[in-house]
């Protein structure tokens, strides 16, 4: 018996050793590189910066967290939260019919086409897609041209004149940022909803109809509750990805910053690592609250 066979036999007798050997590299990676840097970040957020010298004062304080509640910083947090919430809600509304079609009706070639359609955008660089959207949304872009051709440019102008949502053109408006976020994160909402819908046995829908539920009642009382874990899973993606992103609002949108941009600037040009760290903790806390609430509401009961 060769040495390889001997090792194989030994591991067969001690399956736990094999499991440990398989898990050790990823555990080390997660433990040291991932959690380690997370804790380093957390630690930074409890230090403060000396206003005059710009040097970090390595003493435990909650002052940096207090700074988050200054009007300018609170604005950034609330703006980001509003963006993440609206992107998540819109993504769920757009994704659900697509996911429903894919789960219930698409078969064979159409199913393959569906997966290709969802995954294909993920294969190209996210930067390329964002810049492509800048061209679409710009004042000289295709969308403007379309509105002009249809003689609807007055409609676009009216929309752009709405405060907060509008701006000089779509590419420098809140709406533009919203549309691009919606586009880039949509696959992350479609796929979990589709997976949840596929797990609903068709007989449940027949049973609902048999018991007198019309299409709307079947959707409300049977399909939506059973698809909820998928919707929550998708919303975790869209919500947290939007909360932390700093590239999309940098390229498309107004000059008002989001959390990601604030972190980027405080740790870079401003050199205020403690405040950057405190900002970075905000999405983690928000996600923690969100997941707790979702759990309390029974979103994971059907899992």
């Amino acid at each position: 018996m060769g040495p390889v066979a001997q090792v194989s036999d030994a591991l067969w007798r001690r399956p736990r050793v094999l499991l440990l050997l398989l898990l050790l590299p990823p555990l080390l990676w997660l433990g040291i590189v991932y959690l380690g840097s997370l804790f380093a970040l957390l630690a930074q957020s409890f230090f403060s910066i000396d206003e005059f010298s710009g040097l970090i004062n390595y003493e435990f304080t909650l002052r940096t967290y207090g700074e988050l509640f200054r009007a300018a910083n609170l604005d950034i947090i609330l703006r980001t939260l509003a963006m993440a919430t609206s992107v998540t809600i819109a993504a769920a509304i757009v994704a659900f019919p697509i996911a429903y079609y894919a789960a219930r009706y698409a078969r064979g070639r159409w199913k393959a086409l569906f997966y290709l359609g969802i995954m294909l955008p993920l294969w190209s660089s996210y930067l390329v897609k964002v810049y492509a959207w800048k061209l679409i949304l710009a004042r000289e872009g295709i969308l403007n041209w379309l509105f002009e051709t249809l003689h609807l440019d007055w409609l676009l102008a009216a929309y752009l004149s709405i405060p907060v949502l509008g701006g000089n053109s779509l590419s420098v408006s809140w709406t533009g940022t919203f549309l691009v976020f919606l586009y880039v994160w949509l696959p992350f909402m479609i796929l979990p909803i589709q997976a949840a819908l596929e797990r609903i046995p068709p007989s449940l829908l027949e049973a609902a109809g048999d018991l007198g539920a019309d299409r709307g009642q079947t959707l409300r009382y049977v399909i939506l509750p059973l698809a909820l874990p998928g919707i929550v899973a998708g919303s975790i993606f869209t919500f947290s990805l939007t909360l932390g992103d700093y590239i999309v609002p940098q390229i498309i949108g107004t000059s008002a910053r989001m959390i990601g941009q604030a972190v980027y600037q405080f740790q870079g040009t401003a050199g205020n690592i403690p405040l950057a760290a405190a900002f970075a903790v905000v999405p983690i806390v928000i996600m923690g609250i969100y997941l707790t609430v979702a759990r309390r509401m029974g979103a994971f009961n059907a899992l």
Partner: peptide, 13 residues
């Protein structure tokens, strides 16, 4: 008419 399904089709939630 009402049906008793082969797999019972009870609503799990």
């Amino acid at each position: 008419v009402n049906t008793v399904f082969q797999d019972y089709a009870l609503f799990p939630h």
